[in-house]
Write a protein that binds this DNA or RNA. Sequence first.
DNA 1: TCCTTAACGCGACGGATGTAGCGATAAGAT
DNA 2: ATCTTATCGCTACATCCGTCGCGTTAAGGA
Lengths: 229, 229
Amino acid sequence: MIPTRSTSEIPGAPLPSPSHPIDAAPARRPGGRSAQVRRRVLDAVRDQLVEQGYDALSVDVVADRSGVHRTTVYRRWRDVGGLLADVLAEATGDDWSPPDTGSLEGDLVAVNREVHAALTGDPPITTALIAASFRSEQAGEALRLFWADRYARCSVIVRRAVERGEVPARTDARRLLVAATAPLYHEMVLLRTPAGPDLVERWAGDAATAARAGAFAAAGAADPMTDPG
Amino acid sequence: MIPTRSTSEIPGAPLPSPSHPIDAAPARRPGGRSAQVRRRVLDAVRDQLVEQGYDALSVDVVADRSGVHRTTVYRRWRDVGGLLADVLAEATGDDWSPPDTGSLEGDLVAVNREVHAALTGDPPITTALIAASFRSEQAGEALRLFWADRYARCSVIVRRAVERGEVPARTDARRLLVAATAPLYHEMVLLRTPAGPDLVERWAGDAATAARAGAFAAAGAADPMTDPG
DNA sequence: TCCTTAACGCGACGGATGTAGCGATAAGAT
DNA sequence: ATCTTATCGCTACATCCGTCGCGTTAAGGA
């Protein structure tokens, strides 16, 4: 779900708006040395995260690995959360698209499989980002945007299910998707229950059943009688 | 959901097992001065949390407030997470019991109202504990036990619903409860969507609808046809 | 080519965090 | 009352964290 590519690309990316001196400065120097610094630092963040994990991630370590000076990293990213936020911002703009298996339940299972993989992945990058989101405003906002984007892209799953007649026409896409995925996050991230892969299918199935019963119908049309199935 | 009483009670509580020297030492001095130190420290943690919030919580501040020396706090609780874990352990043993409104949906709404209140409460103690659970093994384990206890107590809600004939007999209590509450946690804690109080009733209603449709039936009996309603 | 200036490198600092060693105190047993 | 020892208080120390001020470098325009 969150790519971990460590390939050093050509710079060119815009600066992440330093945010402390909010002078609305138009970022006059987007290319060249600054971009090179950014690339080295973000690569160092990813590498460090992959090799040593979240606990070993600090501004100083990243500065050492990247060869960029401590103060520079502090100035541009403020803290670890800012670094992760920038890494995440890069990942948000990818070309991910939700699976298309031919059935609502199949799609939900596939999505949940990706969530499960992201949450059990080693090193635990996703968990690290969640943890960081509680400490850094920047990381929290970046993660919020990332998830909002993902759920928006997934709405096509529900649209297709409606077209197939699997669920009521007024089914709210976001509610259904949250119903399918939230329990997985809840169990694995907050409740920390030993979650076997069977949970993935169970919650997807429960959500599909609920949707067929008209549970997520918008407006006042929560009546299963309107179900065309 | 998590009491915040700051009343200085009589000591008597057992020591929180220092955990670093795991010599299986039988904690030979459970009463007296040590207990008094514990009481002063835990009260200081709660007071500090209520007055200044999580960001202003550190071992040094707690030590100052309580009048107990820095090193003593470090020795017995290791870090902030350990302190919060001990506070939480005290709260876990309370006499909370789930609401009984007379209907499944009413009970679920009432539970979700408590969750909502806990997550929006100021100061954000629950959020603080969640954040701490990512940093401290002790805090994480304490929170895990706390939630496991709460969900177990709530299973009576489903039992009553089954007896009333509201849901299939084989409905899995935990799955239903997680389906009702997880989306609320997900939206408010992870997704950070601006969550109005209407979400509370919506998710409870969706879960109730799903349960009536036989979504959470155990074993292979997930067929709505077996629904006695 | 020269000039302006944003961004970086550098050393130093003040404060917070966490640990070690050692003596003092009091709990609990005899 | 006396003894043993777990626990606490204290000082000192090492490290990490984040910031400040100033000199240097190089990007982009004239």
